[in-house]
Design a protein around this nucleic acid. Structure first.
Length: 293
DNA sequence: CCGCGGGCCTGAGAGC
DNA sequence: TGCTCTCAGGCCCGCG
């Protein structure tokens, strides 16, 4: 499922029911995620309060009163589901047909405010880990991660710098979490189309200053920020399994300009091209060969 | 160090 | 209906 907009949508769903509440009981029903849940997983959570739920790239980070951070990654198919809202939430809001526990749920959080939150991950590429907050920045999974694309630290200058000397394609570079955090296959394709840049272009050429300084990098940064903002506003994209935590579908998939649209006309104004599918580093890429240079 | 390809998993959908 | 095949939004690891 999830790239930055989907993870952010999940964060926004979980925050109101989990922040300020304690874990009264944690069921580690199935430990078989990408990395097995530690044996003391439930014990380390129970009794602690969730101070806040943040996000870094595609990771959800729950700050706990114990001093630990609960790191959660949804892999390809992980999803959170608010089975029952806490006392402060309006009844009925979560009375969706999916509002029940499944035997396949990996983890179930029982919160002190009455909320019930489940995590389910069919493909098991996701995981949860606990780490002391003081060690978070130095954690191997966080340490090398690039800047948040919607933050001020992400701009044309740094992107050009990060891509300098890269022989790989622009598509592969933008998919690299070390260069910028949170983009995946869909939003890389969409951002490149918005920027009219070819996914096949060598990443290093983004720093080409032959025209205006950082012109390409500027346009690309704008494309990335714009598509992420639009997608977050739409509640993410629901292709297969991503739903919002209340069971509702995101609807950004209706606004895809290129992703999974092979053969369809290019939506760029005045462009007569049609969308093409190619494979780069083993993944599908969708782009318009006419207006993306 | 870099870039690529394989592998990890299950489930949905297409085609026969 | 049922089988087989392909593909999927992520990321780690080993190889050259």
């Amino acid at each position: 499922m999830p790239e930055l907009p989907e993870v952010e949508t999940v964060r926004r769903g979980l925050a109101p029911v989990m922040e300020g509440a304690r874990f009264s009981r944690v069921e580690a029903r199935r430990g078989d995620l990408r990395w097995p849940l530690p044996k003391d997983f439930a014990k380390r959570l129970e009794g602690t309060r969730v101070e806040g739920i943040g996000r870094r790239g595609k990771y959800l980070l729950a700050d706990l009163s114990s001093g630990d951070v609960l790191m959660m990654h949804l892999g390809m198919s992980g999803s959170f589901h608010i089975v029952r809202a806490g006392e402060k939430e309006s009844p009925g809001k979560f009375h969706h047909e999916r509002s029940k526990l499944s035997v396949h749920d990996h983890v179930v959080f029982h919160m002190s405010n009455g909320a019930l939150v489940s995590y389910n991950d069919p493909r098991r590429f996701g995981f949860m880990k606990l780490t002391p907050r003081s060690e978070l920045d130095a954690h191997p999974l966080m340490k090398a991660m690039g800047p948040e694309p919607l933050g001020n630290a992400f701009g044309a200058e740094m992107l050009a710098q990060a891509c300098a000397g890269k022989k790989t394609s622009l598509k592969a570079a933008l998919s690299d979490q070390k260069i910028v955090a949170g983009l995946g296959n869909i939003y890389v394709c969409e951002a490149l189309h918005r920027a009219h840049l070819s996914p096949k272009r060598r990443a290093s050429t983004i720093a080409d200053r032959s025209a205006k300084p950082n012109e390409r990098a500027n346009v690309l940064v704008d494309g990335i920020k714009a598509v992420l903002k639009d997608a977050i506003e739409a509640g993410g994209s629901s292709l297969r399994d991503h739903r919002q935590t209340d069971g509702n579908l995101g609807y950004f998939q209706h606004n895809f300009r290129v992703y999974d649209r092979a053969g369809k006309p290019c939506p760029t104004r005045g462009c007569k091209g049609s969308i093409k599918r190619i494979v780069q580093t083993g993944r599908s890429t969708f782009y318009c060969p006419v207006c993306q240079k």
